[in-house]
Design a protein around this nucleic acid. Structure first.
Lengths: 167, 167
DNA sequence: TCGGTTGGTCAAGTAGCTTGACTATATAGG
DNA sequence: CCTATATAGTCAAGCTACTTGACCAACCGA
């Protein structure tokens, strides 16, 4: 997206925004295709985002809501879907009658393992294409970009603060 | 998305895919916010993508369909919206009774100008954050990544071939 | 124990896609 | 010329990933 509004000379756009978008999109597509090919047809981008915030030992639904930058209802709907697919399950939180613990099922853990493998494979291919040095500088620049951005970094014991109630 | 499936040690993911996604997302958000702030509240990501393929002198609707990697109906719906907003207009193609030429309105051209300005401003800020050298290597790596990808590059006289009819 | 905050659900609406089914124009072959 | 097929566009319905609004139930602090 936002190849936007610029068309340099004859051809496609060529500014940071477009290049970033393009590269990101390519990575996604490659990853998702590999995941679906590896026997996880339920895999989608939105679900992956959510699972990325889900600790192996399980996470409170409310914690997921805090960490993802979307409404709690959206998180709930994603979870409904993942639960229906048998990837996660919602258990009652023993320490809070209201709360629910979202946990991986065996199926979910298997996907996790495949995901890690696939991710490493893609990375390997990227290194092969760019060379180690260039790949390293790429990562370095991207990290520097992220660091400057507000809202990145938020280590762990971070419940409560910012993201002050939306609904 | 796809912060996915890895959570290195304590904290957020840190692989290429995630970094790219994050950076891309940040750029988008910054650009869209600036555009809306500049008096173009109709601006969205999907619309920007489409406009990125629309030449200043106008483009055949069917050509837009070829260039964007989505269904013709999706393109049509996007155009419906943009037309309703008064950003583009659809004129009959004099050389083909079936075809329509999609053109910018004055409002659309104004957005184009603002977009270019904003894009340059963001780029300037990126350079300030990374330093010129690092910014240059970032662009270089991203370009190298794109080049390797299938379907990128498609200079101009490219009508017809690939993308063989979907619907 | 009462009031406010927190955790979660249900319902309805929107954006941005998809596929399927259809109409109108163009064009190539007999 | 006339028919067959490909091309350009439209209409309709459906899905995913979000949104806001309204609500209930459990917890917690004064």
């Amino acid at each position: 997206m936002v190849k936007t509004l610029d068309e340099n000379s004859k051809g496609l756009p060529d500014h940071v925004g477009w290049r970033l978008w393009n590269a990101s999109r390519a990575w996604q597509a490659e990853f998702a295709a590999a995941m679906r090919g590896a026997g996880h047809p339920w895999f989608t981008e939105a679900r992956a985002t959510l699972l990325g915030h889900l600790a192996r030992k399980g996470t409170r639904q409310s914690a997921l809501i805090d960490r993802m930058a979307i409404s709690k209802q959206a998180v709930q709907q994603l979870l409904d879907g993942l639960e229906a697919e048998g990837v996660v399950e919602r258990l009652p939180d023993p320490r809070d009658g209201r709360g629910k613990l979202v946990c991986y099922t065996e199926k979910g853990l298997a996907a996790l393992r495949d995901g890690d493998r696939i991710k490493r494979e893609i990375e390997r291919r990227y290194v092969a294409r760019l060379g180690e040095a260039r790949f390293a500088t790429l990562m370095d620049a991207l990290r520097a970009l992220d660091e400057g951005q507000p809202d990145s970094k938020r280590e762990e014991a971070d419940s409560s603060h910012e993201r002050a109630e939306s609904n």
